[in-house]
Design a protein around this nucleic acid. Sequence first.
DNA 1: CGGAACTTTGACACGTCTCAAATGCCGTGG
DNA 2: CCACGGCATTTGAGACGTGTCAAAGTTCCG
Lengths: 234, 234
Amino acid sequence: MGEGNTYLCKACACSSVSVFKSLSNEEHELLSSKLKCNFYKKGDILYREGSRITGCYCVQKGVLKIYKTGIDEKPQIVAFARPGDITGYRSVLSNEVACTTVEALEDSEICFIPSEIIFALIKKNSDFALSLIQLTCKELNQANSYIKDIAQKTVKERLAETLIMLYETFNVDAEGYITINLTREDLSSIVGTATESVIRILSELKSEGLLELKGKKIKILDLKKMKLISDSIF
Amino acid sequence: MGEGNTYLCKACACSSVSVFKSLSNEEHELLSSKLKCNFYKKGDILYREGSRITGCYCVQKGVLKIYKTGIDEKPQIVAFARPGDITGYRSVLSNEVACTTVEALEDSEICFIPSEIIFALIKKNSDFALSLIQLTCKELNQANSYIKDIAQKTVKERLAETLIMLYETFNVDAEGYITINLTREDLSSIVGTATESVIRILSELKSEGLLELKGKKIKILDLKKMKLISDSIF
DNA sequence: CGGAACTTTGACACGTCTCAAATGCCGTGG
DNA sequence: CCACGGCATTTGAGACGTGTCAAAGTTCCG
């Protein structure tokens, strides 16, 4: 729960990336002057499902996992947030309690943007409003696709799909391993399966020569075949 | 594929319900003057996944099913649209090809709203923009919830959940049967399972005294118990 | 009235989950 | 620095849910 020092953040990633690109100079000023950055340690919770939040969060540095809590407290990861991404805007804009829990996967640096600013910008700048709409539309479409996949694909196909998504979202380190530190349990919370199934299928994919495993680290050896599996083409 | 007569629609449901409630009188005028209504027969396709659409659709009368096409052309229903609902706005706003196919479940009357109007209204009226954002946020949250459910619940639990959703969305007729005509296959395309499983579990729920079945028609006898099942509490 | 589409039932195979136990890894505190 | 305890990972065995295929029955609609 620690949140370290708060400092004013003049020119953080938030103002240069993502939905804020349509802001005028003046509006950027307004935004920057109101931002507060915080440090979060790995495992810290930014906010919990059901709590009321008073602004949204823009990732400067680090990675967040965003999940809903299901049966028996089992989490279902619905998204990640990387530098440049914002989260919490849904609850802010709909003026409802948070519908997900957000947790830092690594030590992170996060800007807080008070609700008023968001609303003011929407009122002032219709391009910004449009950007926000397009952002939510894109996420909505991804969510619908995932519903289709999770309903129709096998666990192996979904795991392949998830690994490809992680590969494309987080890139790889010098050795070719995907640059994100997820436990097997985290993986199962994305794929929507049991942890043991993830483990078994990972080693199956390894024995088929498609993956290399080193502890938690995963390297995709044959992206093409992985895509075939993910697309149920075998 | 028939689309019947087109007529100008001065004061249709679209202008009184849903996201358009924040429009000024003047804007209502503008909107109404540009609307074109069409009739669609049961089974008609409004547009297909992958096609480019030039406006969005507002349901006056009837019901639409909205689905994505998956493995082996198997459809996955992601939403319905009833009178007052609009569809297609996602693709319009993101300026992308349609990400779903939309089909009339009954004979329907649908207004077409050209893209320009939508964009003009967003530019002019920030409250309208905000309404649109809130609409997409709500749908996004529902989609995320459904991801969690489909990943964690059994078919029986999801079927119960689906029936409750249909009950709450479409109400019941004089005899208490849910007012929507879905085939067992449609049901399986919502729940994300095989048609035979739907059939088996429906009759299981019937034999448990929770449902009454008359052809395609379904009556919920014990809503409370259905909710318990849906919530995995037995 | 006839044919097509939809529904139902049964048998069977397979994927996936659960539970249990063994092993490995890592950080904490002595 | 090492030993300990706890947590994550791995493996196995068995049960159960669900999907598939096939065939018969039913309903719907032209």
